[in-house]
C-alpha cells in the first residue's frame, strides 16, 4: 500500500529534521568553535527579544489576575490569587506563552535570514571562504536560542508575577513582599524543575526548526517568505508537543 503524498512528505521532512538535528550535535562539540558569532547571536536572540517578552509577560500576569478574581471572590478565596497565579505562570503559562512569542519573533527571523542567505548564495560564499556554514550559522543560532529562552522565561515569569501583583492591588491591597511570599509558599521544586527543563527543549525546537527551514529554502524570494512562515508554524506546534510530553513525564514523579 502506498502512503498518500502528504503523509510521505511529512515523514520525509520529519526524517530530514532528525538528520539535521543529529548534524547539529555532531558539529556543535567539535572545533572550530564560533564563539564570537555565538555571543553575537545571544545578544540578538536573547537581549533584543527581552522588551517584547517583558511586555507580553506583564500583560499576561495582569490579565490573568483580573480574569481569575471574580470567580475566586464568589467562593471567598481571593487571597489565593498569588499562589494560583504563581503556579499557573511558573508551571505552564509562562514557559509556553514566552516560547510561542519567541517562536514568532526568533523562529521567523532565523528562517528568513538563512533563507535569504541561501537564495542569494551567501551560504555558498561562506563555504568558499573557508567557513563551515553549518557551524557558523546553524550551531550558533540554535545554541543561542536553546540557552537564551530559559533566561527569557525566568525574566518573563518574574515580570508576569509583578503584573499580577499590580492587578491584585487594583481591588485589594498587598505588599510586594507579602505577594511573593504567598507565591513561593505554594511553589515547590516539582513545579520549577520541569518548567525550567522543558524551556531548553522549547528553545532548541525554535532554533533548529528556524535554521532547518531557512537552510533548505528554495524558489527565490517566495521561498524565503514560506521558510519564515513555516518555521513559526512548525516550531509552535512542536512547543505544544514537547509540552504535552513534559507534562506526561513530570507526572511520573
Amino acid at each position: 500500500m502506498r502512503l498518500p503524498e502528504d503523509t510521505r512528505k511529512f515523514l520525509y521532512e520529519t526524517g530530514d529534521i532528525a538528520r539535521f538535528s543529529m548534524r547539529f550535535f555532531q558539529e556543535a562539540f567539535h572545533p572550530r568553535y564560533e564563539v564570537r558569532e555565538f555571543f553575537h547571536q545571544c545578544y540578538v536572540i536573547g537581549y533584543q527579544s527581552l522588551p517584547l517578552v517583558a511586555l507580553t509577560a506583564f500583560i499576561m500576569g495582569f490579565v490573568l489576575t483580573m480574569q481569575l478574581r471574580p470567580s475566586l471572590v464568589i467562593y471567598g478565596v481571593e487571597s489565593m490569587i498569588p499562589s494560583m497565579v504563581g503556579i499557573a505562570i511558573v508551571r505552564e503559562i509562562g514557559p509556553v506563552i514566552t516560547a510561542l512569542i519567541f517562536a514568532g519573533k526568533i523562529g521567523s527571523s532565523i528562517g528568513a535570514e538563512l533563507g535569504s542567505m541561501k537564495v542569494t548564495e551567501q551560504i555558498d560564499a561562506m563555504e568558499v571562504s573557508g567557513t563551515n556554514p553549518f557551524k557558523y550559522l546553524v550551531v550558533t543560532r540554535t545554541m543561542a536560542a536553546t540557552l537564551m529562552l530559559p533566561v527569557l522565561i525566568i525574566l518573563g515569569d518574574a515580570i508576569s508575577l509583578y503584573g499580577s501583583y499590580l492587578g491584585v492591588n487594583i481591588w485589594d491591597t498587598t505588599t510586594l513582599t507579602l505577594f511573593f511570599t504567598q507565591v513561593f509558599e505554594f511553589l515547590t521544586y516539582i513545579d520549577l524543575v520541569p518548567a525550567f527543563t522543558k524551556s531548553f527543549f522549547f528553545g532548541f525546537a525554535v532554533g533548529i526548526i528556524g535554521c532547518y527551514k531557512g537552510y533548505h529554502s528554495e524558489k527565490g524570494t517566495e521561498g524565503v517568505g514560506s521558510s519564515a512562515n513555516s518555521a513559526v508554524v512548525v516550531s509552535s506546534v512542536l512547543i505544544f508537543v514537547i509540552d504535552l510530553l513534559a507534562v506526561q513525564i513530570s507526572d511520573l514523579f
Binding site: S116, M117, T120, E121, Q122, D124, A125, M126, V128
Partner: peptide
C-alpha cells in the same frame, strides 16, 4: 581559487 558569484553573495 576565487569565486565571483552571479548574485555577488555579499553578506547583507
Amino acid at each position: 581559487i576565487g569565486f565571483l558569484f552571479q548574485s555577488n553573495a555579499l553578506y547583507d
